[in-house]
Amino acid sequence: MIQIAVFSDVHGNLPALEAVLDDMEKRGIHQKFCLGDLVDFAPWGNEVIEKIRDLNIPCLMGNHDERIAFDIPVVPLPKHSEEETIARFIAIDHSKKQITDDHKRFLSELPFHLQLNYKVGAKHWSLQLVHSSLSSNDTYLYESEDDEVFVDMLEESRSDIIVMGHTHLSFKKRIGNQWAINCGSVGRSKEENRLASYLILTLDEEAISPEIIQLHYPVEKTVRQIRESGIPDYYAGFLRNENVSVL
């Protein structure tokens, strides 16, 4: 049996990341993978990057990582309210000013996706990790998508399971003997409970067993630090689920 942990979308929320990593350690899970979006919306972007680097956790390039690394302009998204649009511009500009040049360089060198192959007994399992899809790190794929969307991705990658993040909404979708899974978000969950989320995959010779783990963390510490930083209070209210958009 092999166990691996997959997490995504930390978004500068160090207390949430520490809670997730501590839980993995308690469970004795040593193989960890991050699907990207280390920065934006909470004030510990540099510290999160340092933690990922220090622990040598393989990490993909999320769309926010790419934007900060290459100073890509922010464009409004139709799904966002006017309040969120204004807050988003300010928060991302804050990251562009605060993330160090060394950390921007680290983000710029992250891989776009990653394929893993594990052998358990006589069985080889192929796992495809992406931030959002095979061709983009900014595509929104939800559990409600037609199965064909995920079947195409599984066939293109020749994998038994594809794991993604980006939407901040976790799900497990079994399609025949294959899986499409979203591991949710560590630091900016859009689920009603706002808990820090990650995925454990247990591989044995017969099957892959996925489990979504959701954890409490000291959210008030993050809320307080957001309010003491240059990041808009909108994101503190979001973590408290105070009547703000979840799109």
Results as ranks from 00 to 15, higher is better:
Val151Cys: 08
Met24Ala: 11
Met1Asp: 08
Phe33Asn: 03
Glu206Asp: 15
Cys183Ser: 11
Arg174Lys: 13
Phe171Asn: 02
Ile175Phe: 03
His168Gln: 12
Ile161Ala: 04
Pro15Asn: 08
Ile68Glu: 06
Phe106Val: 12
Leu107Cys: 09
Leu14Ala: 02
Tyr142Met: 11
Leu107Val: 08
Lys123Pro: 05
Glu66Tyr: 07
Glu205His: 06
Ile208Tyr: 01
His168Ile: 03
Phe89Asn: 00
Ala236Trp: 02
Pro78Tyr: 15
Asp146Tyr: 13
Leu239Asn: 05
Ala19Asp: 11
Ser159Asn: 07
His113Cys: 02
Phe33Cys: 01
Val74Cys: 12
Lys123Gly: 01
Ile92Phe: 06
Lys79Trp: 14
Ile162Ala: 00
Glu25Ile: 07
Asp37Thr: 05
Ile49Cys: 03
Ser136Pro: 06
Ile68Val: 15
Leu38Trp: 07
Met1Trp: 07
Glu143Phe: 14
Arg27Cys: 07
Gln225Phe: 14
Arg27Val: 05
Gly121Ile: 10
His11Thr: 04
Arg88Asp: 07
Phe41Leu: 07
Lys123Ser: 12
Leu199Tyr: 01
Val75Arg: 14
His64Phe: 13
Lys173Phe: 10
Glu83Lys: 14
Asn241His: 13
Thr100Arg: 09
Arg174Met: 06
Asn182Thr: 14
Leu17Val: 09
Val39Thr: 13
Gly187Val: 06
Gln115His: 11
Asp102Ser: 13
His216Met: 05
Gly176Cys: 10
His11Gln: 15
Ser95His: 09
Glu206Thr: 14
Asp22Phe: 10
Val223Gln: 06
Asn46Leu: 15
Pro218Leu: 13
Ala42Gln: 04
His124Leu: 12
Asn56Val: 01
Asn63Val: 10
Gly230Asp: 08
Ile181Pro: 01
Leu35Pro: 04
Cys59Leu: 10
Val6Leu: 01
Met1Arg: 07
Ser159Gly: 08
Phe238Ser: 03
Ser135Pro: 01
Asp40Cys: 13
Tyr142His: 07
Met153Pro: 05
Asp101Tyr: 00
Thr222Met: 14
Met61Ser: 04
Ile86Trp: 12
His124Met: 03
Leu35Glu: 06
Glu83His: 12
Ile29His: 05
Gly28Lys: 12
Leu239Glu: 03
Glu155Thr: 10
Asn193Pro: 04
Val244Ile: 15
Leu169Asp: 04
Ile161Leu: 12
Glu220Ser: 01
Ser144Thr: 15
Asn56Arg: 13
Leu21Tyr: 01
Leu60Tyr: 00
Val10Cys: 09
Ser170Ile: 04
Ser209His: 10
Thr222Ile: 11
Leu129Gly: 00
Asn63Lys: 08
Ser144Met: 06
Tyr235His: 03
Gly36His: 03
Pro43Val: 05
Ile99Ser: 00
Asp146Leu: 12
Ser95Leu: 09
Met24Leu: 14
His166Ile: 08
Gly237Lys: 13
Leu201Ile: 13
Thr202Arg: 15
Val74Lys: 02
Ile90Phe: 00
Val74Ala: 00
Val244Lys: 15
Glu109Gln: 14
Ser229Glu: 10
Gln3His: 06
Lys32Asn: 07
Glu155Val: 15
Leu21Arg: 01
Leu134Gln: 09
Glu66Ser: 07
Ser132Asn: 05
Tyr142Leu: 09
Trp125Asn: 07
Gly237Met: 06
Phe89His: 09
Asp152Met: 12
